[in-house]
């Protein structure tokens, strides 16, 4: 088997928080945003990450990118451990891992022309290039994402959301990274534009042999673009499987509930959405057992006392005590 480009092992992220402390001088509480997520990413593949708001999906890819410091666990890039405290390591990492963001307009500096925006990564990472080759690369990249050259001297606010996202993609890919992290790249866009951007991403992935980590809350889009899908809930991994398996035979009760709630654009399909009762646990004070226990339709006493370990069932990795049946 080929070596994965990225291996994430037991990644934890916690944020210090003032909330819930008794006195101002009490030690900081920890918001546990991410609790032990592991996966491998092979070259040219797409891993989709789905979950509801607050499930830690953005935290996960921001931690991989080094924008949030992981508190525990390891990330290996091409087999080598990444030390997030070492500036050189992080710089190296960002040459091969780039990111696109949720809000296409806000992710571009409003005071820079788009030519400068796309040229900036090259000035930062490719100091070997001279001005002409750099501009040549910028032109090719912007042309590749479909921005006409006559617009290069304009400012971000003059472009539509879809075009801004294309510029964001150009900025991320101009240094030819091997992995592109996508943080909800299409959720701010209209359906018709969303399809354009998804198609563009897939084309670029094919041409540049990119690996993608695609985070979204829209299962339809994730299913469309991903090979594997990872389902997160309260910072913990619920299920990971190939997209097709996950959609046709979800093993985890949370995945089942999530899938049943997705609206289908067909009035003849009677959606029987499973209604989840109960409240979400607080990330300040996570339960000892399964994090989904409070809302799970299948809960039993074992769920409150024991944290389920991720196990292989059929072709899926599932973290549930009852997945086997």
């Amino acid at each position: 088997m080929t070596q994965p480009v990225l291996e994430v092992d037991n990644l934890h992220v916690a944020f210090p928080s003032r909330q819930g402390r008794k006195y101002p001088w009490s030690p900081m509480n920890a918001v546990r945003a991410l609790n032990g997520v592991s996966f491998d990413l092979t070259k040219g593949q797409t891993l989709g990450i789905v979950g509801e708001s607050g499930c830690g999906k953005s935290t996960l890819i921001r931690a991989i990118a080094g924008l949030n410091k992981p508190t525990q666990g390891s990330v290996k890039l091409n087999g080598a451990d990444v030390d997030y405290d070492n500036r050189r390591d992080v710089l190296n990492l960002r040459k091969s891992i780039q990111m696109i963001f949720q809000d296409p307009v806000a992710s571009l500096n409003p005071r820079m022309t788009i030519r400068d925006i796309v040229a900036e990564p090259l000035t930062a990472f490719r100091t070997d290039l001279n001005n002409t080759t750099r501009l040549e690369k910028v032109r090719n990249m912007l042309d590749r994402v479909g921005i006409a050259e006559r617009n290069f001297n304009r400012y971000p606010h003059e472009f539509s959301g879809g075009q801004c996202q294309r510029i964001g993609i150009a900025r991320a890919l101009v240094v030819e990274p091997s992995i592109l992290l996508c943080d909800e790249p299409v959720s701010a866009l209209d359906v018709s534009i969303q399809a354009q951007v998804v198609n563009l991403l897939q084309e670029l992935q094919r041409d540049m042999d990119l690996s993608l980590i695609f985070v979204a809350h829209d299962l339809g889009v994730v299913r469309h673009i991903s090979d594997d899908i990872l389902v997160l809930y309260m910072g913990s991994m619920m299920e990971k499987a190939a997209g097709k398996t996950l959609v046709s035979a979800p093993q985890h009760p949370y995945t089942q509930a999530l899938l049943s709630a997705v609206p289908v654009p067909d009035p003849n399909v009677q959606v029987q959405s499973q209604v989840l009762e109960g409240d979400l646990p607080s990330p300040l004070n996570l339960p000892v057992g399964c994090v989904f226990e409070s809302r799970c339709p299948k809960r039993a006493s074992i769920c409150t006392t024991e944290k389920p370990v991720s196990q292989d069932i059929k072709q899926s990795q599932v973290a549930c005590h009852f997945a086997a049946n």
């Binding site: 921001r62 990118a65 924008l67 992080v90 710089l91 960002r94 040459k95 780039q98 990111m99 963001f101 949720q102 809000d103 806000a106 992710s107 571009l108 500096n109 409003p110 900036e120 990564p121 930062a124 990472f125 964001g168 900025r171 991320a172």
Partner: peptide, 11 residues
């Protein structure tokens, strides 16, 4: 704002 994150991604 996200463009600051983007700048951090550029090292």
């Amino acid at each position: 704002r996200e463009f600051v994150d983007a700048a951090r991604m550029l090292g």
